[in-house]
Each structure stands twice: as C-alpha cells, then as structure tokens.
Design a protein around this nucleic acid. Structure first.
Lengths: 394, 394
DNA sequence: GGCATTGAGTTCACCGAGTCAACATAAGGG
DNA sequence: CCCTTATGTTGACTCGGTGAACTCAATGCC
C-alpha cells in the first residue's frame, strides 16, 4: 500500500472513487462519472483505462446522438458465495453469485439435540452438494456466511450460552466450519443477518437508525446504527429476548426471571395452547392464526403486545427511524403488528413513539437470514476484490 | 473548498493530518511529525511553514544534542467558549478557553415553576457577567453549549414533553438563546453532555461502546457508540427513565405506568422517606446516606438495584465495554454501585454481563454536564478554526 | 579556539498526477 | 458532403510529494 498522503495514495483513492460510483449508480458514461465524482474528464479517462486493463470494469457501447458514449459498468465479481443458516431444528444452505439472487438452495432437518459437530458437518456437506450440482468447483466459493440463532462472542469466537441450541455452547464454529469448507467463513447471529438483509435489500434500505426484531422460536434483535449492523464490543449486541419484563415472572432458561422470552418464546406460546389445542409447532400456530383460529390469534396478539413493551424501551433508548418485524411471526402482519404498535405508543416517550415507523420486513422470513449471510459473504468478497485491485496496480 | 480528488485536496488533507497529529500528541518536532504521519520530512517542512505563516501553530526551540529541534505546537485557539447548564432548580454558567479548564463559573437558583424565557434570560445574563468580570468582550465568545435535563428533538429543535422542566415544553431554546447571546449555540440533553465530558476527559476516554447513566433528579442515559455520542434519528436517544419496569406499577408523569423513573426518581426517593425523615432534598438524602443514615442508604441501594435491572436491558441490547454511573447519586460510590452491579449480573446475559465494566464517573457530578457542554462548544470552535484555515490557504 | 560530530530542518531536481484546452471520433441531420 | 452534437483522448502545464544533498546550530573533544 502506498504511503498515506502521497500522490500514489491519491490515485488509489480516485480509483476507488470511480469504482464506488459505478457500483452505486450502475452503468455510467465517463462524463457522468466525472460529474458525480467531481473529477475531471481527463482523470476519469486515465482511471477507467487502468481499471479496464485490470479487468475490473467492462465497457459497452451505448446509442445516442453524437459520438457513442461508452458505458462503464462493474465487471461481475468472480466466484460464488455461500450461506449456511442454522435454525432451531434445521439447516438451510444457499449459494449465490452476489446481490440477493440465489443460485441454489437446500434445507435439511436437524435433530433437536444434535451436537455442533454434526450440524457443521451437515452444513458443509450440503454446501459441497449444491456446488457440485450447479457445476462449479469447491474452490469457486470465495466466502461463506454462517448464521446461528445464538449470541456469538467475537472476541473468543465462541457461541454464547443462552441461545436456542444447547449442543453448540462454547464451540468455535467459525474455525471448525472454515476447516470443513476450506474457505473464509463469516459467523453471525441470525437476527443480525436478517437485519443486514433488510438493510441491503428490504425495509431498512437507506435507514440510518433502525431496529430489526426477529420473532420466531425466540426473540432477537439486530440493530442498524449509522446504516451498519451494530454488534457492540463483543458481538452480542441485540439480545432483546432476555430483557426483564416482570421481575417476579416465570423462570427463564437463562437463569433469570420474567425475561421477554418467557412470555413470547415458542415454548410459552405452545404451552399456553397445549390444553386447548394439543401439541402444535410454532408454524402450526401461525398458520392457524392466519386461518382465523381465535385462540392462536389471541396468544400471538399477546406476544405482540409484550414484544411491543420491550421494543418501547429500545425505541426510547435508540430513537430509531424504523422498527421492522421479521421472523416467522411476522407472517401474521397487522395481526401482531397492531398490538405491538399500541404497546409502543403507550410505553415509549411520545416524541420517539410518534416518529418511529413500525412495519413488517420485506424479505421472506424463511430466507431473510440467508440473504443477510450472503450479503455478509459478499462484502468480504468485495473487500478481497478491492484489495486485489490495489496490489495489482502498483 | 478544492475539488475532491485533486492535488489541492491532497495538500489540504496533509495540512489537517499534521494539525491533527500535533493536536493529539502535543508539541512535536518535524521529524516526529513525519514519523507519525508517514509523510516525508520535506512535505512536513512545507506544511509547517504554511501553518506557521497562517498562525495556526507556534514554533518553540528545544534543547538537545545536535542542531536544536523546533517543537511545533498548536497555537491556542482564540476566544472563549461558554456553557449554560440548566438543572432541575438552578442554572450553572461556565466560561473556558478550551479543554476542561474553567476560567470562571457561577451558579444561580431558579424558581421551580419558572418559564423558559426566564431561565434563558438569566443564563444569558450570567454569561455576559462572567465575560465582563474576566475582562473579555461578548464578541470573544465563539460558541456556547447549552444543556437541558430533557429530551431535545433535533428535527424540530423543540424541548420534548417529558423532561423535568414543565415550563420549557415546545420551546425552541437554541434559537432563543442564540438570539440572546449573539453567538452560535449548541443544545443538548445534560445526560448526553455529561457522557461527552466523560468520553473526552473521564471514565469513557478511548471507549468505543459505553453507556453513561446520569442518576440525579431523574434518570437519563448518554450513549457512546463508536467513540461518539449517539443521538438517534431525532436526537432523543438515551431516554432510559421511562423504560417499563413493571407494567402494573405506579402511574408516571409521562402517562405510562411503572416507568423506571417512578421507582428511582427523586420524587419516589423523597416520598419513600417522608414519613420517617420529613421533607428533604435529594442532596440531603445523599449526604445523610454518606453519613451512614440507614434509611437513606437503603432507599438509594434500592434505586441502584432498579437502575441495574434497566441497565441490564441496555447491556443486553448494546453489549457495551463500560457503564459509567454519574449524576448526584454517583457520589455514593460503591453504596449504590454494588447493588447495581448485582442486578446487572443477575438480569443480563452472562457473556455481556461478564465483560462489562461498571464504574463511577471521574468528573464531579456538579460540573460534568458543563464540562461536556464546553467540549461541545469547543468542537464547534475547532471546526470553525479548521474551516478558516482552509479558506485562508487557497 | 579549532574542528569533527550530530541531528534537524531546508532546498532542489525529479516525477507522478490532476487539469485545461485542443483535438479526434462517431454518429445523425440537412 | 458538410455541419452539428456530444464523447473520450491527448498533450502542455502546473502542483505537490519525495529522496538526496545541503545548510545550520549546537556539543564535545583535542
């Protein structure tokens, strides 16, 4: 890398400026690039020439009056990116080429009490299968994003102790997965990943301060602050499921009492319905509620209210522009959103409650996490491409 | 300003690089500057010459072997900066020259039900008095930071509705104050200001993710995220006083029930002690607790516990490195910190609770807000100096 | 006192990079 | 066929950073 402050670094900055402009605006002519970046046409000409000979952009003619402009667009990043997302009882694997497009995907159930090694092994095997089926080589995969429904300590790299998966505690998933896949692996909480997905392609696009609530088997949050996913000092930010709602409430699996999770987690929901509805899964409850079953609907409305109380605290604390509800429960739409909004309105300070926009996520809850995991992997690939470009142009 | 990406902008960046290096490290020789910035000695020589002729730095000889090195240090910023901080029943006015040094200060009580105009008027008059007494002109004041114990909507500029000061609701304090002082006025919540003070000069120095809790007449929080004060989308972030602790708790002045404030606000503390101790002020309770009064101590310990429960939620959500307790109540030190720590330990998820460091602020609670307000004003002055430097060197 | 030594800052020739202006280019219109 | 229109390229110029040579001011040694 060139010394900071030198002319070489200025050149580099301008190369990146041009590249980022093209990335953001799509195909542009050189004059347009010059207009947007504020660089002179001559400089843009030189930079584009370099970029073209390095294979970073592609030039295609366009038709218009006068001399034909040449549109500059980003050369497609090479290689594949992958995502492996572990749910409470399954693993979903996706491969893509970038953006939110999905090349192939596969889902597979996992036993309730599986060990981490087993899950990782199955995830890795599915990735390899998908690659083979789509006619690629394992070495084509540049990066894989992995999601777990548990807090992940980025300092130690270990899975936190109060996630949904008991068999995964204290495992360094990133290291093991990286070993199994032979590619760079990025590990994150599924709430953070879904938040990233919504921020890139969904309801949180362009939002500076946003809160994503993932309500599924458990409740988690992903925070978008300054347009980026916020992970806190050790990566476990966004844990909203164990906020104390009632100091004397039921005992939670985290050891505390009256956590939000004891009121709205799948356990609580299913227990509340057992007497009248028998043994159901969370998905059953949701689809019955959508079909008009009063009991199921009522229990989920209550969940919405409880989540709303907790979210009101978050709204007070962070004063977000938008709160997005995601996760399986978000399929219910206004049924659960309405009581949630009312609770926020009631419990948050008026000025913050008045400005916050509470809505449902845009992405399908089944794939939102995976889309985010792909986005995470894509970022890494972009960084690598960029670094390669810089060392390639000494 | 020069076009981005041009060589002129590179020059400017290097000027700022040198300036910031000197700002951060204090007096340095040119070789040292070159070492830190990575620029060549020749460039540093040129830049320093420019900076010197612009009056931005001062050169002083130093003694050592070989040719005497010339130490480059920042020219003292010209002019004064001021702070006006409104408490629940008083106003404190401070003037300084930069950093945390205080040139002069004055405190004056305010009637409990005063109107905003009255408070602003008194604050402005005090500023003018202090300036006159210290032998300066009103025009010497470059910027004034103003603190209010209430949420401030930065979009509308108005004071939020659930602060401690009923007579201030819906007033555009910044505009009125600016009119009265004839200088640039920066307005912020006192919790944010005290957090800024601790971040610049106290317990939050160098901390990336930190939470400052101001426990005084009411409870508020100032968030430090990425080393900066985080204000949310409309500036009201950090409102922790109206988090719901108990859905069926006492009615709060904000209209909700069971807010933290109804358990630990001065109102609640004083009411709890009225039967046994008669009419006290919060300061009385604190000093008696320090003197060993069991009742006062017990009530404040309970406050600490309640605050701890709420803070545990914040710790889960933001995963901070440090939580700093400030405000009048922090004078009690471990008496209130201990129960607070225990509550956090008990209610927050283990990994986050284990890594968070809970301590008392370094700054005197009486002046922490003002120190922050000065820092805010100082930032503005620095920006103005910097801008002047740039246009002064075309 | 004279003189080498030491290390800081300055000067200068050089070169890389951005800019302006002129120019080459590639259509469509009359 | 030439003019118009609009884009991209080229070259002379200037600006700014750099390395190497140089100046400068004190110390210490003889």
């Amino acid at each position: 890398m060139p010394a900071p402050g030198s002319q070489a670094s200025l050149r580099e900055m301008n190369r990146l400026r041009v590249l980022d402009t093209v990335r953001e605006h799509g195909a542009l002519t050189q004059v347009e690039i010059a207009g947007v970046t504020g660089l002179s046409a001559a400089t843009v000409s030189n930079v584009v020439k370099e970029l073209d000979s390095a294979g970073a952009v592609i030039l295609s003619p366009s038709i218009r009056n006068g001399r034909r402009a040449v549109r500059v667009s980003l050369a497609a990043s090479t290689g594949l990116i992958g995502a492996v997302v572990f749910g409470d009882r399954d693993v979903r694997v996706v491969i893509g080429t970038g953006g939110k497009e999905i090349v192939a995907q596969k889902r597979m159930p996992l036993p309730a009490d599986h060990a981490a090694d087993e899950g990782i092994d199955r995830g890795a095997r599915l990735i390899h299968e998908l690659i083979a089926h789509s006619g690629h080589m394992p070495s084509d995969v540049r990066a894989v994003g992995v999601g777990l429904p548990a807090p992940i300590d980025t300092v130690t790299g270990l899975v936190g102790s109060n996630g949904i998966l008991p068999g995964w505690r204290g495992v360094d998933v990133r290291a093991v997965m990286q070993e199994a896949l032979g590619t760079q692996v990025l590990l994150d909480n599924t709430a953070n990943l879904a938040a990233l997905g919504e921020a890139k392609f969904g309801a949180l696009q362009g939002v500076s301060t946003g809160v994503f609530i993932k309500a599924s088997y458990g409740v988690g949050a992903g925070l978008i602050l300054g347009g980026e996913v916020f992970r806190g000092s050790a990566g476990t930010a966004g844990e909203i499921g164990h906020v104390t709602i009632d100091e004397n409430g039921p005992v939670c699996r985290c050891g505390n009492r009256g956590c939000l999770d004891t009121f709205v987690g799948a356990q609580a929901v299913l227990t509340a319905l057992r007497a009248t509805h028998g043994s159901l899964t969370l998905r059953d409850v949701i689809s019955r509620a959508l079909d008009g079953d009063a009991g199921c609907r009522r229990v989920l409305e209550d969940s919405g209210r409880h989540v709303g109380v907790a979210v009101a605290g978050v709204v007070n604390l962070l004063n977000p522009e938008v709160v997005v509800l995601g996760g399986q429960v978000s399929r219910l739409g206004e049924i659960v959103l309405q009581p949630m909004r009312e609770a926020i309105e009631r419990c948050a300070i008026p000025s913050a409650a008045a400005t916050v926009d509470v809505r449902v996520g845009v992405l399908d809850p089944d794939v939102a996490d995976a889309v985010g995991a792909l986005a995470l992997a894509d970022q890494v690939r972009e960084d690598a491409d960029r670094a390669a470009l810089l060392v390639g142009q000494p």
